[in-house]
């Protein structure tokens, strides 16, 4: 592979690689098939995100994981750029299930303390409202006018559910008050 194709400023040093990273990924739900990848590049070619932002390159991300560039992958912004469209998932000739793979890698990143702020906020919103958006009295006024049933403004039980799934074992803080 040429230096340009890898487009890295520094060389990859064998002793800095975490060769166990790929096994962590295969043990994560969704990451099971990563080692099947033979780097054909179908995923990147059909990716609608890559077509406007080459920071997100699924083929390259998979190579980085298989090489063992653990920290670089988990701390990156690019693993959060998959739009979840399943275009690559449908066409991957090796059934790597890339959309689920990206979710698996994100789960590992979160556990290691690398959660983007907007994702942390989403957790807080679900705990507070039971939804990622707040239903206000206003919505219910409009709904009544239209003859639609009013909605419960919050689903407080979701906080209890997330307590049982121990989400705060992986997300240390939350911006939303208890």
């Amino acid at each position: 592979m040429t230096k340009k194709a890898l487009s890295r400023e520094k060389p990859i040093l064998m002793e800095e690689l975490d060769t166990g990273f790929k096994f962590e990924v295969t043990e994560e739900p969704g990451g099971e098939n990563i080692k099947r990848c033979f780097a054909c590049g179908t995923c990147t070619v059909v990716c609608p995100v890559f077509s406007v932002n080459d920071q997100y390159n699924p083929r390259k991300i998979i190579r980085m994981i298989l090489f063992g560039l653990k920290e670089e992958v988990l701390k990156s912004n690019f693993i959060w750029l998959c739009s979840g469209c399943y275009s690559c998932y449908e066409l991957c000739p090796r059934d790597v299930k890339i959309t689920r793979l990206m979710a698996a890698v994100r789960n590992i990143a979160v556990r290691e303390g690398h959660i983007p702020k907007p994702m942390e906020l989403i957790v807080g919103l679900i705990e507070k409202f039971g939804r990622i958006l707040e239903v206000s009295e206003f919505e219910n006024i409009v709904r009544s006018k239209k003859g639609m049933p009013e909605l419960d403004l919050t689903i407080p039980e979701l906080r209890k559910v997330l307590k049982r799934t121990r989400i705060h074992d992986v997300i240390k803080s939350s911006d939303i008050d208890e």
Binding site: G84, G130, R131, I132, I155, T165, I171
Partner: peptide, 17 residues
Amino acid sequence: PEFSCCGFPLGGIHHSS
């Protein structure tokens, strides 16, 4: 009325949740 968020937004954060 008890239906909540479907869970999808947490898929990339905490799979089991």
